[in-house]
Amino acid sequence: MNAEPTPTTTTTTTASPGAAPIPRPAHRRHVRVAADDPYTRGTERGGQLRDGIPAAIEAYDRLFALGGVSPAQVREDAERALDAIDRFRPGARAEIEGIAHGAGVDVWRVAALNARTEILARSTVVPPGECTTVVRIRDVDAGDNPSAAGVFGVQTWDWHVELTDGWHTLESRGGARGFVGLTENGILAKIGVNSAGLALHFNILGHVRDGIGGVPVHVLAAVVLGEAGGVDEAVDIVRSAPLGSSGSFALFGEAGGALLDLSPVGVFEARAEHGYLLRTNHFLTAVPAADEKSWLYQPDSGERREFVRARLADAKPPETAADLVGLLVTGPGEPPVTCVPDPGLPLGRRWASLATVTLDPATRTANVLDGTPADAARGPWRTLTAR
């Protein structure tokens, strides 16, 4: 299948008055793959990203090196991650191998992209990005009608501004479940919804034991989206995975959801609050929080969460996912829920909200904005449906 044309021009967006403009592709790449065989799906994807994957490798090489991870260590980590993936889901390894073949790069290079969170956990210089997620679920205890519409979510995906060109939207079909969403070049999955109506929002967390040795969290997201028929099944898949690093999956369907703390010391479920699953970048359960890398995110993560929590308390109950987007718009003097880069900071510390994503499990729809929540009114949004 043919990918959309590689952009030759860029546009710039500014999240708030006085903020640094963020150069963005004029035409965000969209990748479609459809094959029963995972290696073939990977080959199709890699072929469509022959220019994007080498650029992603180069960007992450710079971040790995900045964090003090040598090229030899990156390769060793990538190969260990690939072995863990193979033990957990051989089909996921086959798809990574297919991506490498299609893109014309070494397999370990694509494995390193999929394990970038785990490899970067070695660094004390390059902190992870920051994201904010809100999922509206039915709160029967608070009087919500169990049959009423209203299970949907929104998140910002905040990451290094150097990766602005390094992501695409995706339709993947041919596995047990088709799914759509957003991911980075060469990485199996990140944020999305599948054909069974299972939606997944993804945030990174930090634990002192984070590292290589388990299934990379991005690969686990792909397995969940490609297999799970509902929230309970998704939770079971997550609990079955040996984990070497931390993250959060907000998993939800038409009937409700689960907010999970993922960590090397276990998987723990956080409670909904007043009909919402609300996540920034710190653990919400006691066991992993006891050994959290709190210096990575605090006080920022707590301030962002409390800021959005107060907004939710004051706001009219949302009727659609689009109603949640405005709650994530922030400006000068407010916690950086809408994240804009500071051009004066060095590589590894220039954060930006690279995308805003809403998920609606009832319609199996992901809406992806190539921009911050502040850009919502002027777009461009891309609507994807998993059927």
Rank of each mutant, 00 (worst) to 15 (best):
A289M: 10
P288N: 14
A321D: 11
Q48V: 07
F307P: 06
D375W: 04
R378Q: 15
P336V: 04
A286Y: 09
T132E: 03
E233M: 13
T13N: 10
I237S: 04
T132W: 05
G68Y: 01
A112F: 04
G371E: 05
T124Y: 12
L205R: 02
L312W: 06
T43L: 13
E118W: 00
D141H: 13
V154F: 03
A258E: 06
G153K: 02
H201V: 08
A142K: 10
V74M: 10
A35S: 08
R378K: 14
F179N: 08
A322T: 13
I119L: 01
G46H: 12
P380Q: 09
V105C: 11
G333A: 11
S246P: 09
R50G: 13
A286M: 11
L200D: 02
A310S: 14
S70I: 01
V193F: 00
R209P: 00
V69T: 13
A121Y: 00
R209M: 03
R93L: 15
S123Y: 05
L63R: 08
G230R: 05
R138C: 03
P288V: 05
Q48D: 07
E227K: 11
H27C: 13
G68S: 05
F252T: 00
L113S: 08
V180D: 00
R45F: 11
G18N: 15
W159P: 03
G211C: 01
R45Y: 13
E118G: 03
T365A: 06
V140H: 11
L354V: 03
G67P: 03
S294G: 14
E58G: 07
A111T: 11
P242H: 04
G371P: 02
F307W: 11
E319Y: 01
V308S: 03
G181L: 00
V161Y: 06
A72H: 15
L198H: 06
R41G: 06
P373E: 08
R93I: 08
R45K: 12
L113H: 06
V265D: 02
L277F: 10
D77K: 02
W159E: 05
G143K: 12
E303K: 13
A3C: 09
S301M: 02
L347W: 09
P21R: 05
G214M: 00
I119H: 01
E58W: 01
E44Y: 04
T320G: 01
G174E: 10
E227Y: 04
G178R: 08
P7V: 02
G175F: 10
R89E: 15
L296K: 14
P146E: 00
I85Q: 00
H207I: 08
P5T: 02
S147Q: 13
G266E: 03
A26R: 07
G379I: 04
P216E: 05
T156S: 10
A352Q: 12
A35N: 06
Y297I: 07
L205G: 02
L284M: 05
H201R: 09
A286Q: 10
